[in-house]
Amino acid sequence: QSYAYNFAASAAARVGAAYIKAAEHDFTVSTDSILAAVTPATRIVFVCNPGNPTGTGIRNAELLRLRAALAQDVLLVIDQAYGEFDDQDPGPIFALVARGDTVVLRTLSKAYGLAGARVGWGVFPPSVAAEVRKMQNSNQVTMASLAMAVAAVEDQAYMRETVARTTQIRDRFAHDLRSAGYHVPESRTNFVLIGFSSTAAAQAAERTLRGADIIVRGLGGYGLTDCLRATVGPQEMMDRALRILIDMPSA
């Protein structure tokens, strides 16, 4: 996909593999574009859903259609780092792993708030898991991080409450930005992508927000120089950011 998590490109470069991007439609993954980009040499298809840095998502049916159309010797890797923010039942996607040709990745860095602990997890076919273990760093996740991870996973009610509150703040922020003339794709994550009229407008907004102690992320590394990514924070902070953006001369 055009704007998939950049680490996928870095990992491909590290092993000398060709990395091919598939066009997206309005910052959203296109199954048809991915299938059109597949060649007999394709070995791995990587899909970030919900997307990063776009925040958009596709329905499970599209992922199932993608898997069905791919050859069995093509490994489908579905990155669901923001999966807890998606309103879809994850069951059908996890069930794909039983085929032996699909991997689903998750993390505790987003909905569980453990970014500093660096704990992730995934569901792998046994044959793939065996190869992944060969590449793992010998310095595993610390005991402290594992203890935090266990405590976080066991408190599902708190996670769901956090996701619900974050979603509420996110949707209000996105709605108000759209009303002010900004292009904001529908997000299924804990952040919103804000499209500006130009690269200069995005840079000016970033500087103004930073001056107000509000940090947003520029996306030049993804080729989205006219966009900023804003992670959802407390309501008061999002309201301050909104007021600043509404007052900007160019949306």
Rank of each mutant, 00 (worst) to 15 (best):
L245Y: 07
A147E: 10
N60G: 10
C227Q: 12
V123M: 08
Q1H: 08
A130D: 07
T199S: 04
V104M: 11
L108T: 15
I246L: 00
A13D: 14
A144F: 05
A98M: 02
L193V: 07
L177Y: 08
T31L: 06
P50H: 03
Q80H: 02
A61I: 05
R172N: 12
V45E: 15
M248T: 11
P92G: 14
E131H: 13
L76S: 08
P50Y: 04
T225D: 14
F191G: 01
F191H: 07
R240A: 13
Q72D: 15
R207F: 06
G113I: 14
R106T: 05
A37T: 05
T28R: 13
L224T: 06
L96M: 14
V153G: 01
S30C: 10
V103S: 05
A12M: 08
E186A: 12
V141Q: 09
V45R: 13
L219A: 00
G122Q: 06
A41C: 01
N60A: 08
K134T: 14
G120Y: 08
F94T: 07
Y112P: 00
T54W: 02
T39Y: 05
F27K: 01
I169V: 08
P50K: 04
D89P: 05
Y82F: 15
V232F: 04
N52G: 03
P249E: 05
E131D: 15
P125G: 11
A22I: 00
R65L: 11
A164W: 07
A144Q: 08
E236C: 06
A202G: 03
G233Y: 03
